[in-house]
Computed example of a mutant assay.
Amino acid sequence: MSGNRSETDDRPWADPDAVPFLQIRNVTKRFGAFAAVDNVSLDVYKGEIFCLLGGSGCGKSTLLRLLSGFEEASSGQIIIDGQDQAGVPPYARQTNMMFQSYALFPHMSVERNIAYGLKRDGVPKAEIATRVTDMLSLVQMDGFATRKPHQLSGGQKQRVALARSLIKKPKLLLLDEPLGALDKKLREQTQFELITIQESLGVTFMVVTHDQEEAMTLSSRIGVMNAGQIVQVGTPHEIYEYPQSRFVADFIGSVNLFEGWITEDHEDHVIIRSPETGTDIFVPHGITGVEGQKVAVAVRPEKLQISKSRLENLRNTTTGTIEEIAYMGNVSVFQVLLGSGKRVRISQSNRTREVDHTLTWDDQIHLGWSDDAAIVIAS
């Protein structure tokens, strides 16, 4: 059920009769006068990989600790699989947490680290041995059972920590920046391994991360957090393509924001006057707004077209000068200075090995976007 899967109408969050597996109801956590989590409500469904995404200090890790029972809510209600968690200590909850540091016991072997929770619970030795073997196979760590943590790479430690978190069969696994200690290439590889493991077990994952790419890759849905609140919930596609606020548009990926105001407001289209583009912007549908209202038009860099000649097929066009060009392998990124002084970022896929030398520094160019490429956001 990851974000890369096709989205269909059988998604549980789209079914009004579906019962959420995790229900967070008006939860607030205060430290003195400061609300680290501020009146948060959220439904998560069984089998989801749900990502809480936000910058440092936004409250995402505090919310995770509230779910685990390591912190107690100042107000509100947390229900997991129909059970109110008020007063339930961490060890009695059907949850487990995987920490960013992995928190492996350095003096224990891999198999003893994984088995630790089962031994504490008094599970018979034969059953422990079977479950540890199964977990080692699941995380592709066969042959590493007798090694100590200092003999493992970062990715291997991550897998051991995951196995230890999953072996007790939690109903809800909480992961706090689970891939933060890995390098970029290993992190990308491990993201897909996590999805495979989650889908094979059917455990509900709640992942905290500040990494937008990680959230987009892993999640069935994302909750974007800011200042203790969840400001938007949606699939990766919905969050990226249809941001509901300036914060979400600016936080997720790269975006160009053109300031302006509504000059014509019709049912089937809107005209926005934008001094930053030096032209009127046409929006091919109605919006919630009134004439004279300040708005911002958001356009992703990959949705902008650039050319030395006029873009006759587009209604929304302007002109500028290429200031900078960055070749980044799969894409080339252009920074263009408009006549208003506004700087615009444009990215183009490099589909062939040959570098396109038709566009270079100081070129006067035309740029534009198709009617459906832009999103209007209240300013």
Rank of each mutant, 00 (worst) to 15 (best):
S2A: 05
S2M: 02
S6T: 13
D9C: 07
P12C: 07
P12K: 05
A14N: 05
A14G: 02
A18H: 08
A18Q: 06
P20F: 13
L22N: 08
I24A: 08
N26P: 11
T28G: 07
T28C: 06
A36I: 11
D38S: 13
D43N: 13
Y45A: 12
G47R: 04
C51F: 03
T62Y: 10
L64K: 05
L67W: 03
E72G: 04
S75W: 05
D84S: 06
A86L: 05
Y91T: 01
A92E: 00
F99L: 06
F99C: 06
F99R: 08
Q100P: 11
P106N: 03
P106I: 00
H107T: 14
S109R: 05
R112H: 12
N113Y: 04
I114V: 07
G117M: 07
R120Q: 15
R120M: 14
D121C: 06
D121G: 04
K125W: 01
R131M: 02
R131Q: 10
M135R: 00
S137R: 00
L138N: 05
K148H: 12
H150R: 09
Q151T: 07
G154M: 04
G154P: 02
Q156S: 04
Q158C: 11
L162H: 05
A163R: 00
S165I: 09
I167K: 02
K168S: 10
K169L: 12
P170T: 13
L173E: 03
L173F: 11
L175V: 02
E177W: 02
L179I: 05
K184D: 09
K185I: 13
L186V: 07
F192M: 11
F192S: 06
L194T: 15
I195M: 00
Q198G: 09
S200N: 10
S200M: 06
S200A: 03
F205V: 04
T209W: 05
D211P: 15
T217N: 04
T217M: 03
I222L: 07
M225N: 06
N226W: 00
A227S: 14
Q229E: 15
T235C: 01
Y242D: 12
Y242G: 06
Q244G: 14
Q244C: 11
F247Y: 12
I252D: 03
L257F: 15
E259L: 08
H269T: 09
H269Y: 15
V270T: 14
P284V: 02
T288M: 09
Q293F: 15
K294W: 14
A296L: 12
P301T: 10
L304C: 02
L304V: 15
S307N: 10
L311Y: 09
T317Y: 02
T318A: 06
T319E: 08
T321M: 11
Y327P: 09
M328L: 11
V331A: 12
G339Y: 10
S340H: 13
N350W: 02
N350I: 08
R351Q: 12
T352L: 03
T358K: 02
D362S: 15
D362I: 09
I365Y: 10
G368F: 01
A373K: 02
I375H: 11
